Simulated scan of single mutants.
Amino acid sequence: MLFSQASCLLALTTVVAAAPYEKVEKRWGGWGGNGRPWWTPSSASSYLEFGKRYPGSNTAAPTCDLSQAVLPTAPTPLPAPAAGLSLSHVAIGRGTQNYTCDLTNSTAVPVAIGAVATLFNVSCVAADSPDLLAKLPGIALDLPVPTTDNEDSAAYQDMSGHHYFLDASTPFFNMDTSLHSYGTGAFKKTNTSSAPSDAPLGQYGVGNGSVAWLKLDAKTSDGQIFQEVFRTLTAGGNPSKTCTGMPAAFEVQYAAAYFLFEKP
C-alpha cells in the first residue's frame, strides 16, 4: 500500500512526535495496514498499547502479529537473524551521531564516538504497514526530537526507551521506562552495509548522506533479553569527509528503524 506524504506525517505525529495526548474514552492507538486508526476502548488502556506485541491484562487493547513484519534488505544484504530468534520490538530512533576531530592534524577526518537517540515504538506499523515504516525515518529526521520528560505526553507514552554508547564500541539499548520494561542490552557491531543510494542526505535534504545499516550482536547472552539488533532505513547521520572547518566535537542529526530480536 502506498501512503501520501500527508498520511505519513499524520501517522508520524500520532505515533512518534509529541501530539496532544488526551485521556478520553476513545483516542488514537496507531495505524493498521488499511491506513485506518485503531481505537483503544478505555481510558485505562495506555496509549502505548498500540505498539506492544501483547495486550497485557487489557485483552481489548490492540495487538499485532510481529511475525508478519519483514526486516528491510540492505543493498548489500546483512546476515539473517540467527536461527531460533524472534522479532520482539521495532522502534524508530531519533537523535544524533556523534563525532570528534583532531584539530592539531590538518588532514584529520571525523571519528565516530557513538550515538544518542530516543526510541519510539512502531512495532505494529512494522507488522501491518511496511510501506509506511520505510518512510518514517526520513520524516522523523526533519522533525525535532520529541520532548519525553512529561509522562502524560504522547511522546512519552510511545517511547520505547533510549539508545546510547557505554564506550566507543559498545552500543546499549535501555528499553525500560516507568511505563514498561522491555529489557536492556549491550551489543557489538558484527556486520555493516552502506545505506541505499537514495537514502536522505540529511535534515531538510542537506547533508553528507545516511549512516550504514548494521547488524549488532549481544556482547553476552547471560541475562539479556535482546540478542540481535538491526539498524535499518537510516536517514542522515554521516559527517563531512574531512575535519576542515569543523569543531573538536560535533553532532549530526539522524533517524533509523531498529529491529530487536530475542530468544523465544
Rank of each mutant, 00 (worst) to 15 (best):
N150M: 00
Y164H: 07
S160D: 15
Y182S: 10
T192I: 14
L12M: 11
G209D: 14
L233M: 12
Y21P: 08
A112Q: 12
G51F: 04
K23G: 06
P41G: 07
A134N: 03
A117S: 13
K26E: 11
A155N: 04
F3Y: 15
F3G: 05
A112L: 09
G209S: 08
P81N: 12
A11P: 08
C8M: 10
S57E: 11
L179H: 13
L12P: 04
S123R: 00
P130V: 08
G56K: 01
N191K: 10
S57I: 06
N174I: 02
K215Q: 14
V16F: 00
M1N: 14
M1W: 09
D222W: 11
A256T: 14
P247N: 11
S4I: 04
L201E: 09
C8L: 11
S210V: 03
G237D: 06
P77S: 02
L143K: 00
V211P: 00
S7V: 10
A115D: 01
F165E: 04
L136E: 05
F226G: 12
T170N: 01
A155L: 01
N105E: 13
V206Y: 11
K263D: 13
G51N: 14
P247Q: 13
L2H: 11
G205A: 02
P239L: 06
D128S: 09
G205V: 01
G236W: 11
L132D: 06
A80K: 15
A212M: 06
G223A: 10
G202F: 04
K52W: 10
S240N: 13
S45M: 13
F165H: 06
Y204T: 04
